[in-house]
Write a protein that binds this DNA or RNA. Structure first.
Lengths: 243, 243
DNA sequence: CATTAAATATGTCTTTAGGACACTATTGTG
DNA sequence: CACAATAGTGTCCTAAAGACATATTTAATG
């Protein structure tokens, strides 16, 4: 196909013949948050064929008239459900094959997104078709399409990031304490971290700003509240080799 | 769209109306090799509208009748040009926006691929529309679409991999020497590496098999030929933190 | 055949940074 | 005021990379 078209008119004539079997094209963001010591992911209940009634990712089709980029599609779909745009959005990977959707060949571009629970709590609690689901419960649910697999991949990638960056901090409120961040990392890694090592690495990388304020969690010494240096665009706190 | 379709028939009726403006969908592999101390990338001369006559990536449209997955599309396109399937193929990222192709909204799923130069030298030299281009020359060329940017991204990702893995070794023949591998890594990183550190890390990770053979490059002590442990599926040679 | 040049390979000391864990600091509570 | 609970630090140990000198093995040369 398209072997002999040499100008736009010829191309369009040829291409339109192909469109009858153009693949399904969607964008699927995996939005994580961290609240009350638990990792959660945003799911929505499907109202259409196929897999109607099942829970799945808050994705959808690209709106070619209004979305200029794939990221805009991801943000638009998230805003529909949460009311806001997440501060962190990064492309995860793209799945495309003939089997994942019973309708036809199907492609979805997946994103990992992070947001503070408090920012969208109000909006989400008003709609009945969107919910935060504990990540540990997701493995026991039957989700639409291959969304379980996509969520696992996103979680695995976020786990890797927890080893060398403070990207997970975007799942926390704007200000947060180091113990909070450490617990989030421990939840992602599935094991405890040496407090001293964790703090040392973050200190040396100069990724956080001391707000001067403190927060007390009941009894015990209050923890210092930090804020991310967002201007730097730098998240990693382990050295590069061979520098 | 698709808000009220509840079964396959309704869906198809609705979906077919959308197809007139379905986005363009392509797969674009960036195939690297390393030969005579130089990094090279495979480019093909476009024979069709748009950007006819410009060089670009050896990509193309998904063949829904024959490709079962996106990887199969990538491999098929590479095989058309090189005659073989590369031993390393990994998804890079997906670009999708309204501007990258003058025809319409366009999406391309990009892959990084690596292959030994000798394996496809014969086939490539027979066709006039495919060529190995030195990576350093690519920045001075005007390529089709946003292919320059895609190649830069692929190179940057491969550079990162050179810091902690021996994935670049797939750009070498099946057996290779450690000095060869080091020079390849140095070409990717753009600076010299401490020989001892490099060898120590690779030794400890046990990623290579000593073939027992040696290869002499003119004068000087011959270097031991190694082969990758392919069964292990393990490429990284730096420790994980918090293990 | 001895010497040298060139390349591969290793020995070893230094430096850096994370692991372990004891210790100090600051709060609320009975 | 003692004590529990949580936050944060001091310090020694260990692992691994950096730096660089040294040894090894080959081809080339006179």
């Amino acid at each position: 196909m398209l072997t002999s078209s040499e100008n736009e008119e010829t191309f369009l004539a040829t291409y339109n013949k192909r469109e009858f079997d153009a693949p399904l094209m969607t964008v699927d963001p995996v939005l994580f948050t961290y609240h009350e010591g638990l990792l959660k992911v945003l799911l929505v209940k499907r109202s259409n064929y196929p897999d109607k009634g099942l829970w799945g990712l808050p994705g959808g089709f690209i709106d070619q008239d209004n979305d200029q980029t794939l990221e805009q599609t991801a943000l638009r779909k998230l805003k529909e459900k949460t009311g806001v745009s997440p501060p962190y959005l990064e492309q995860l990977y793209t799945v495309g094959n003939a089997k994942r959707d019973k309708r036809s060949w199907s492609i979805t571009i997946c994103y990992t997104a992070l947001i503070a629970h408090q920012i969208c709590e109000a909006q989400i609690s008003t709609v009945i078709d969107a919910k935060w689901i504990m990540l540990d419960d997701v493995s026991n649910m039957t989700l639409a399409f291959d969304h379980s697999h996509i969520i696992n991949t996103a979680r695995e990638r976020l786990k890797q990031k927890a080893l060398y960056s403070i990207v997970p901090a975007y799942a926390l409120p704007e200000t947060f304490t180091l113990p909070e961040l450490q617990h989030l990392h421990e939840a992602l890694l599935g094991k405890s971290i040496q407090k001293k090592s964790f703090r040392r690495r973050i200190d040396q990388a100069e990724l956080l700003i001391d707000t001067g304020e403190r927060r007390s969690m009941g009894s015990g010494r209050p923890a210092v509240l930090y804020r991310m240096k967002k201007d730097s665009g730098k998240y990693t706190f382990v050295r590069n080799l061979e520098n």
